[in-house]
Amino acid sequence: MKRRKTLETVIHGVFLAAGLITIAFVLMITIYLIIAGIPAIREIGLSSFLFGAKWESTANDPKFGILPFILTSIYGTAGAILIGTPIGFFSAVYLAKIAPKSVKRVVETAVSLLAGIPSVVYGLVGMLVLVPSIRKLFHVPDGASLLAAMIVLAVMVLPSIIKVSLTALAAVPKEYEEGSMALGATPVETYFKVSVPAAKSGIAAAVVLGVGRAIGEAMAVMMVSGNVPNMPSLFESVRFLTTAVASEMSYSSGLQRQALFSVALVLFVFIMLINATLNFLLKRQKEK
C-alpha cells in the first residue's frame, strides 16, 4: 500500500513536470532572446538601432540601423492583410452561410491544403511566376520586391483568416438570424448586418492571427523580396525583420551577430504584442 502511494506521487510529479515544461520553454526563449539581444543594443544605442536608416553590417565602419527592416515588416504585413482580409472574409461568410454542402466541402478542403503547403513551395512559385510577371507588368528592372512579398504573404494568411472567421460565424446563434429574417431582412442582409457584427471579435482575431503569421514568415519572403536593406517601396528590393536574421546568420560574427539577435528580439516583441491582442479578442469572443 505504501509502495503504491510512492508510485502515485512519483507519477504525479512526472506529469506535473510535463505540464510545467511549456512554461519553462516560453521563459527559456524569452530569457535567451533578451540575454542575446541586449548587448548589441547597448553598444549601438537603442535609438540609433531602432531608428537608424542604414544597415551596413559588413562595411569597415558598420552601421546597424534597423528602421528599414521594421518599416518593411510593417508595410509588408499591412499590404498582405489589405489584400488577404477581404478575400478571406467574404469567402468565410460564403462558406459559413450560403455555400451548398458539396461546394463547402470542396472549398474547405482547398483551404486546408493551402494551409498545409510548405512556405518554401510558396517561395518557389513566387520566385518563378510572380517575380517575372511583376517585372514585365510594371516594367521594373527586378520583380523581386515588396509587392511580390505582399502577394505571397496574402496567399499564406488566407487559410488562417478563413478558418478562424468561419468558426466565429458558425457559432452565431441561429435565433439572431431567424429574428432578423422574420423582420423582413433578406438572407444576405441578415448575414452582413446581424451575423457578422455578432462574430466581430472572432473575425478580428482571425485578422490578428493573419498579422502574426505574416510578420513571422521568413523563407517564402526571403525568396521573393530581393533581400536588399532598402527603405520600403513597392517595387524596390527589400529586407524584412525575419529575413534580416535569416540571411546573415550563417556567416556573421562579433557585433554583427549580436545585432542579428537584437533584430530577433525586436521581432519577438512585435509577436508578443500581437499574441496578447489575439488572446484578448479570443477571450471576448468566447464570453459572448
Binding site: 511549456t22 535567451y32 532572446l33 502574426g212 513571422g216 530577433a264 519577438f268 499574441n275 489575439l278 488572446n279
Partner: peptide, 24 residues
C-alpha cells in the same frame, strides 16, 4: 498559465525557434 504558455509557443515564428535552438 500553462494554456497561455502553449498559445504563446504556437504564435512564435519559426525563425525565432531556429535562432533560440541554435543558441541553446
Amino acid at each position: 498559465l500553462i494554456e497561455y504558455a502553449a498559445e504563446t509557443l504556437s504564435g512564435i515564428p519559426s525563425i525565432i525557434y531556429g535562432l533560440v535552438g541554435m543558441l541553446l
